[in-house]
Simulated scan of single mutants.
Amino acid sequence: MPQYVDYDGASLYIDPIGLSQSAKRLIAHAKEVAETITAINHTLSALALSWAGKTQEEAEKMNGAWTATMRGLFGTEDVPQSGVLNVMAAGTEAVAMVNGQTELAIADMFVKFLGEIQKPSSGTPSDKPPEDHTTIDNSAIIAHW
């Protein structure tokens, strides 16, 4: 690991609109796959009637495990948002929304900052430089308890 990291040279770009569109596509694809798997499950459930004895028990056990896994992945028909794919899509959508709001807040902050620094000074200008505060007793970083 490098000893020195230059954070001034790093950047992070998140496209809120693209992220939101990806979340919507993920939901659509998850729904599509869930519908196909549901159809497969219905077909498999109908096949269990023709099995007997230990084979039928094994098929029921496998179908139960399969159904539980698919419910965990896609949710149920009544509560689809309980599935992990829908949770991931909702999280992606939330990241897009929060990032968009953050960008707007930062832009607004700079607009306000610019407005404040363009205001005329409220005091009289002074040619005297600011007082030096480098003594230990009067540091810029100090806590008074």
Rank of each mutant, 00 (worst) to 15 (best):
R71K: 12
D78N: 08
G100A: 00
G64L: 07
T102L: 13
K24M: 07
I106Y: 08
L26V: 02
A68H: 03
G9C: 04
A30R: 10
A39V: 07
S82K: 08
V87P: 01
T38W: 05
P16L: 08
T67Y: 04
S22I: 03
L19W: 06
E93T: 00
A30V: 11
L104W: 00
I14G: 05
K31M: 09
N41M: 13
L44F: 10
K61A: 11
A96M: 04
I37G: 04
A96D: 06
K61L: 08
V87W: 06
D108G: 07
Y13A: 13
A39W: 05
A34P: 02
G83P: 01
L26C: 02
N99Q: 00
M109C: 01
Y13W: 09
H42M: 09
G64C: 01
T36L: 11
H29G: 09
A28D: 13
S22F: 09
S82A: 10
V98W: 01
M62K: 08
L49M: 06
E32G: 07
T36M: 10
G75K: 07
N41C: 05
M109W: 03
M70H: 07
G100N: 02
E60H: 09
T55S: 13
W51F: 15
Y4M: 13
R71C: 02
L85Y: 10
V33H: 05
G91A: 09
A28I: 02
A105K: 03
L49V: 11
M97L: 05
E32M: 10
M88R: 08
H42N: 14
Q81I: 06
I14S: 03
D8L: 14
D6H: 14
I40K: 13
S11R: 14
L49H: 07
A90R: 05
D6V: 13
K24R: 14
T69V: 04
T43C: 02
M109L: 07
I14P: 03
A48C: 01
N86W: 03
L47E: 13
A10H: 15
G9I: 02
P16I: 06
V79S: 05
Q21I: 06
V5S: 11
M70R: 08
V98S: 02
L47F: 11
T67G: 04
G91H: 09
T102W: 07
G75P: 04
T67D: 09
I40N: 12
Y7G: 06
T69R: 09
T38R: 13
Q21A: 15
G72K: 06
V84F: 06
G83M: 03
T36E: 13
M97C: 00
A68I: 00
L73H: 08
P2K: 15
P2Y: 14
Q81K: 10
T67S: 13
Q81L: 08
D8S: 15
I17Y: 04
S45W: 11
L104K: 09
T92L: 15
P16K: 04
V98K: 08
F74R: 06
T67L: 08
A39E: 14
Y7T: 14
K31D: 15
T43P: 00
P80N: 07
